[in-house]
């Protein structure tokens, strides 16, 4: 039976706010200063990116540098809009990142469920084998994957990039989801079994919905990993399949010169989808990352 208690009447703000002792006030001020300093430290590069994107070319290297641009221009954004090649990089990034995220979540969900809920010989070794793959130097993996994809004719394809990105995202996704599945009570699954649900149905209708925040967190992690990758995307793709990070480097970083304002404008625009995704899915992300951290 559920009892609903009457909510206390809202008190005027002045009455709710308690007077802080001097030492409490000092700690609170110190905490706010610490947060402000850390925030400034974290956000300043973003601020500088935006300022540079709006600064005319002949002012970018002004010395001493100015925190606030004396003149601003939209030319770099206009140039960006005219660059069809960048749109192609963007489309490639979206395709590769979305498929990597979906593939990582699907595969890691089943793997994690098997590790969490089944007991079989070699389970722990397999789990550690998955984790061990995270410990290889990327350069070693790159050379090997290049040889393998070259041998099977996949070089320059989306498939090569998606498979390689998934290789890196799977271990963390599996361990993250295993932690979450561990927190799903066995009694819940036993109840489902008593009601006649198969293991397959139990997984899809009970366990996965409960683990939704974790699935979103794993998907976001995989998406961002694929979105940001530079060296694998550069090496395994063809010019037509190139994603944004190598595409931007290719377009704006040269032997003699770097088009900083254009690069910053492009970086700002291409980071918007990721920012939007994070804002939209933030509550799942926080819940998902911490869900498996503590066993109840």
């Amino acid at each position: 039976m559920t009892v609903t208690l009457p909510r206390p009447a809202t008190l005027p703000r002045e009455r709710v706010r308690r007077r802080l002792r001097p030492d409490q006030a000092r700690s609170r001020v110190a905490a706010w200063i610490a947060v402000a300093v850390i925030g400034l430290f974290g956000m300043f590069p973003v601020y500088w990116l935006i300022v540079t994107a709006f600064t005319p070319d002949d002012r970018v290297f002004s010395f001493p540098p100015s925190l606030f641009p004396s003149r601003i221009t939209l030319d770099h954004f206009a140039d960006l809009a005219k660059n069809e090649q960048l749109f192609g990089y963007l489309v490639n990034s979206v395709i590769v990142s979305v498929i990597t995220a979906v593939l990582s979540v699907v595969v890691s969900a089943y793997m994690a469920y098997a590790f969490s809920k089944f007991r079989y010989r070699g389970r722990k070794s397999l789990m550690h084998l998955v984790l061990a793959s995270q410990m290889f130097p990327q350069a070693l993996l790159l050379v090997t994957l290049y040889a393998v994809f070259s041998a099977v004719g996949l070089l320059g394809s989306y498939t090569a990039m998606i498979l390689s990105f998934t290789t890196f995202t799977l271990p963390l996704c599996v361990w993250m989801l295993k932690g979450i599945f561990d927190t799903v009570p066995g009694s819940l699954m036993e109840a489902a079994a008593i009601d006649g649900a198969s293991r397959w149905r139990t997984l899809h209708t009970i366990v996965l919905p409960l683990a939704a925040p974790g699935l979103v967190a794993a998907g976001l992690f995989a998406f961002v990993r694929a979105w940001n990758d530079f060296i694998f995307a550069l090496t395994l793709s063809s010019p037509e399949r190139q994603t944004l990070p190598p595409g931007l480097v290719h377009t704006y970083l040269g032997e003699f010169q770097t088009a900083w304002p254009d690069l910053m404008a492009a970086s700002f625009v291409v980071s918007l989808p990721v920012i939007a995704a994070f804002m939209f899915l933030q509550r799942y992300l926080v819940g998902g990352l911490t869900a498996g951290a503590v066993k109840g």
Partner: peptide
């Protein structure tokens, strides 16, 4: 959380070594 004991750590080290050797062989 899954904890790792000394045996697990050794197992992980062994698997890593095996994996690196396998990768090197494929390179």
């Amino acid at each position: 959380m899954t904890t790792m004991n000394r045996r697990d750590a050794l197992r992980l080290l062994g698997l890593s070594t095996f994996g690196v050797a396998a990768l090197a062989a494929c390179a």
